[in-house]
Simulated assay, not measured.
Amino acid sequence: MTKDSSKTTADLYRMVMPDHLCPFGLKSKALLERQGFEVIDHPLRSREETDAFMEDQGVETTPQTFINGERVGGYDDLRVHFGIDPPKEERSDTSYTPVIAIFSVAALLALALSWHQYQTFLTLRAAEWFVSLSMTFLAMQKLQDVEGFSLMFLNYDLLARRWVRYSTLYPFAEAAAGILMTAGALIWLASPIALFIGSVGAVSIAKAVYLEGRSLKCACVGGGSSVPLGFVSMTESLMMVLMGIWMPLKMLLL
């Protein structure tokens, strides 16, 4: 490996083949440059060259980065090296990132729609849109892998355990209610759906988490979720309950 007394020089070995440009190699190069390193790029242009490099270095993957002749490792190792991520053994197996992204985008869209319709952000309709759009986005996450969602959902939902088919119907029902409430159409249909699935969900979550103290993953953002069952899933259910009550009530009042 190239040795340099300068702390700003790094050697990067990455696959650059006609049919494969390693994305982790590109990310490693960009990260090193952002950190102020001058990158000495060593493209591995064939499978044979890559295999020979890995065998010589005793590694199983590329890219590989060397700083001052010392091997740091791949892209994930670089992120740990620069303090961006904690070491693997210290990482949590839970993440709220998908939920934060969904609620943030739903809130911004609700405000945008309010501005478009009423030339102001602070409207009651914006709050309604926030909830209905959140329901729709959460349903969309579930619909990407209905089977995976249903397997997680069956761990705690009381109705799904008695009627398994409900676990596959749930995301479609949530999407339908969310879309109709966003449009303000067929509230006589959307509200009972939201009220029903929200109520069953809230009772199921309360029993599993707060009464039985079970530690489960939430199916709220689909199968394979790393969001813990509890506050987020309860919030989702209660939002549907409130919308199920409010929307028809508003029609009667107004």
Rank of each mutant, 00 (worst) to 15 (best):
L108V: 15
A194H: 12
Q57I: 04
Y166W: 12
K217H: 15
V105E: 03
R71P: 13
A30S: 11
H20S: 05
V80H: 09
R34N: 09
Q141S: 08
T182K: 00
L169V: 04
W129E: 01
L113W: 10
V16P: 06
A190H: 11
F153M: 10
G184Y: 13
D4G: 00
L229K: 14
M247L: 10
A219L: 00
S95N: 09
P98Q: 02
T182H: 02
E147F: 04
G230A: 11
L108A: 12
S5M: 04
R161V: 01
T65V: 14
Y156K: 05
L113I: 06
Q64D: 00
G184H: 14
K250M: 00
Q119L: 00
M247W: 07
S5E: 10
S204Q: 02
S215F: 11
M15D: 04
F153D: 02
R47A: 12
S114G: 12
E212H: 15
T50N: 11
P98V: 02
E128H: 15
S215W: 12
D157A: 01
L252V: 03
V16M: 02
R125C: 06
R45S: 04
M135R: 10
M243H: 13
M152L: 11
P192Q: 07
Y166R: 08
W188G: 11
L158M: 05
S167H: 08
T120A: 02
A52L: 06
S28I: 09
L252S: 01
K250R: 06
A190T: 13
K3R: 13
L26G: 11
G198A: 04
V203A: 12
S46C: 13
